[in-house]
């Protein structure tokens, strides 16, 4: 998977690119609007991460340019400025998603994967990890053709863990993914533990190996 990361903060760009690279995402960087425009003319990307405040212009210009070129690259806006008018303008100009800074890298990766899945959707929308198959359309999970009954939250959790395989995911990041904005208001992320426990049990009952590891003090990890 190849994405274009348009971000003028070098440090942030480096962290994002490092994180994504180790999960089979090739990351090309652009720190100015001009270089980003050059790149979209030359190449196609599975997904474009777009920061709106660029030193040489407004990120919205890139969206209009994409439209003009009739390209169907998925675009996720990553912006510090999150107001309804900005969101609406972004979506109107063809952006697919909006992620407000600061965000968890794991959340960013999950959003990229979801977007790419939607874009490359060829009649089926499934995620496979060894013996586990997740069908996103029918919202069913199978382990070696044994159906597993998962709640909506457990399903989201599984997808998030598989997408971020081999990464340590903090309880905060997991809680935020599951409950959105509300999670970061509460310090208590115990409910994440409850969901993880249930998911683990249901998967192993269906005959799957135990991929979910607890990382001391920090959170959980999907060990591939």
């Amino acid at each position: 998977m190849k994405i274009l990361l348009i971000e003028d903060e070098g440090e942030l760009a480096a962290s994002i690119s490092d994180y994504l690279k180790s999960n089979q995402v090739i990351c090309e960087g652009a720190s100015t609007l001009a270089s980003a425009l050059d790149k979209i003319h030359l190449y196609d990307y599975d997904c474009i991460l777009l920061d709106l405040n660029l030193p040489d212009g407004d990120g919205f210009r890139l969206l209009s340019e994409l439209k003009k070129l009739d390209k169907s690259d998925g675009v996720i806006i990553t912006s510090a400025k999150d107001t309804l008018p900005v969101r609406l303008e972004g979506l109107q100009l063809g952006a697919d998603d909006f992620l407000t800074k600061p965000f968890h890298l794991s959340e960013l990766l999950a959003r990229i994967q979801a977007l790419v899945r939607r874009k490359q959707f060829n009649g089926k929308n499934t995620v496979r990890f060894r013996e586990i198959g997740i069908d996103l359309l029918s919202k069913t999970v199978n382990v070696n053709d044994t159906p597993v009954e998962l709640t909506k939250k457990e399903m989201e959790l599984l997808l998030f863990l598989v997408g971020n395989q081999n990464k340590v995911l903090s309880k905060g990041a997991l809680a935020e993914h599951l409950s959105g904005d509300m999670a970061d208001m509460l310090d208590n992320h115990g409910f994440v533990y409850a969901h993880i426990k249930n998911l683990k049990r249901k998967l192993s009952d269906a005959g799957s190996s135990d991929y979910i590891k607890t990382v001391y003090g920090l959170g959980y990890k999907w060990q591939a």
Binding site: S15, D18, S22, A80, K101, P102, H104, L105, V215, G219
Partner: peptide, 26 residues
């Protein structure tokens, strides 16, 4: 203005989390 440094801070922390950490470091 604080959002961007905060985003960097959080991203770096997450990068750090991926290392093998001793319980004290964790």
């Amino acid at each position: 203005e604080l959002q961007t440094p905060l985003a960097i801070f959080q991203a770096k922390l997450e990068t750090l989390m991926q290392q093998r950490l001793t319980p004290e470091q964790a």
